[in-house]
Design a binder for these strands. Structure first.
Lengths: 235, 235
DNA sequence: AAGTGGTCTAGACCACTGT
DNA sequence: CAGTGGTCTAGACCACTTT
């Protein structure tokens, strides 16, 4: 029937959002119930339900079954930030990405890695790759991989395929954890990233899981003055 | 207090997820269509549709109308990270939060702030607050607020209510932008945060919009060794 | 008892894609 | 053309909260 360009549930969402954005409905205030929206906007309940459900999902509203729907209290809510694949990010900026492989070998498990990767064997695959944006070093990728989950890792041309990409091809990705910190980088890292004296680095530690086990642990060092994470929350 | 059986759409989601996690359906592979799921699992199409739609929303699948549903290629996908309210974060850890107000005044617009806040008037409200976790300084909040949007800002007890909380009460939040960077902090910041010599700082720049205008700009400095951002992505 | 959200169904029409 | 996803309806039953 009424499949106009904007879907009906979008109209319902806007109907609610307008009142929140204008300040008419403040945080904690009760929002019209699904039944009321059905009557007000002449939509079916499933349509109103979808609209409200999506607003809940995006953090704008919160619901209490049996009680009602309320404008979410964003006071203590979190805001999303995106961590992206470095190669994709550089290319999206329209710049040239080049990866230089500094090391790619089988190594005994370093003590500092053992706890974070918890591998079964005594040896790991290790790789050290320097990613450039327009020939300027941007990220140093220090990665350890469990050989049991990616036996062919040493044969991969990491200058062409990023390790993250390869691992996702080989082992189904189940879980990714990121920890972001500001550090004063070790001398070797600073030198490779061509940092100015005393320049800080943004360190992202990425652990990935596959088939119920830890598959890889990576230390991603970024030049403090040349790299930033960006996130926007709208509404 | 009876058996809360899992919703049907969750079963559909698991049905699909199991095959992805096991590697049976690899990135790019075609997923069973809604009709097929309807037949396989004896659910209505709307139920299958909801399940698939949620998996698309979470980034696991991607759809092409008229063509089909496919396992998403996570290669260049981003992973979410959360930036939280500092007071809420500290309290959630079960620790004591204390905010010390170092400054709260009307100031002429600093040159470095003008471009980022783009205020109409010639003066701004400025506040400098040091947030402690168990009496250890964790975040220095250097904030500028447009007086037009929060006229009562100077009267707020920032030791009790965080500025972010107050601003959300006064002006409906429309948009928040975050930029995260690693820096070597200025001497004054290092001293206030009681950083070790040469310690790096994690800087979060937060800009907020309200009623179509920029409402506040905040520089949030964090001790590099005592603060981290954490994010988990689960498939 | 009335209201609320949570879920589910069995249909339907549409626009689009691929053969 | 048949198949796909995108949307929408008008009912329904349930568990829960509020009055």
């Amino acid at each position: 029937m009424s499949s106009a360009s904007p879907p009906l549930y979008e109209k319902v969402k806007l109907h609610v959002l307008k009142r929140i954005r204008s300040g008419e409905w403040r945080p904690g205030a009760r929002v019209h119930s699904e039944h009321e929206l059905v009557r007000e906007l002449n939509v079916s309940r499933m349509t109103a339900n979808r609209a409200i459900r999506e607003l809940v999902q995006s953090g704008v509203l919160s619901r209490v079954a049996g009680s009602g729907t309320f404008v979410a209290d964003l006071k203590s809510a979190g805001h999303p930030l995106q961590i992206r694949n470095i190669a994709a990010e550089i290319r999206d900026r329209g710049h040239a990405h080049r990866a230089v492989v500094l090391a790619q070998a089988r190594v005994p498990v370093p003590a500092s890695i053992r706890e974070r990767l918890q591998p079964r064997g005594r040896e790991l695959f290790h790789s050290l790759v320097l990613h450039h944006e327009n020939e300027v070093p941007l990220q140093l990728e220090d990665r350890y991989v469990d050989p049991a989950l990616a036996p062919g890792y040493l044969g991969v041309d990491l200058g062409t395929v990023t390790a993250h990409e390869y691992l996702m091809e080989v082992a189904p990705l189940e879980r990714v954890e990121h920890v972001v910190r500001a550090i004063v980088p070790p001398a070797r890292v600073a030198s490779l990233l061509k940092l100015a004296a005393g320049e800080a680095a943004l360190l992202i530690e990425r652990t990935t899981w596959s088939r119920g086990r830890r598959a890889s642990f990576a230390l991603l060092y970024h030049a403090g003055t040349r790299f930033e994470l960006r996130g926007v929350f709208d509404l």
